[in-house]
Design a binder for these strands. Sequence first.
DNA 1: TCATTGGCTATCA
DNA 2: CTGATAGCCAATG
Length: 111
Amino acid sequence: MNFTQKVLSLTSRIPRGKVTTYKAIAEKLNTRAYRAVGTALNKNKNGAWQQAGKRICRRHHAVIPCHRVINSDGNLGGYAHGLKKKIHLLREEGIEIKDNKINLKRYFFKL
DNA sequence: TCATTGGCTATCA
DNA sequence: CTGATAGCCAATG
């Protein structure tokens, strides 16, 4: 299992309504490659999500919920499909977003 | 294989 | 708040 796969694996475990950070994932993998975590998630847009099949996509069930991964300071960070999409998805899960920021104390999911 | 570049970052000045 | 820098991986040449 390479680095990217580990990242995606951990990300897929984040439950609905919770979020985690790039840093947390990196630490879980015993490394400081937070940037590489973002790179890994970005690749996912051309990988698991699309290859998982159109059915799954139509049902609004992303295989790898990369929208639940944010910056360690509460900022949203980025999103391959557009930041607005990320905001929308998170709000659908009941996560409040004010000024493009999330209350980590409240929604953080410890891996 | 090596060098370079860029990314959904973190941290410090 | 804005750099600058540290830092790791993957894509590219």
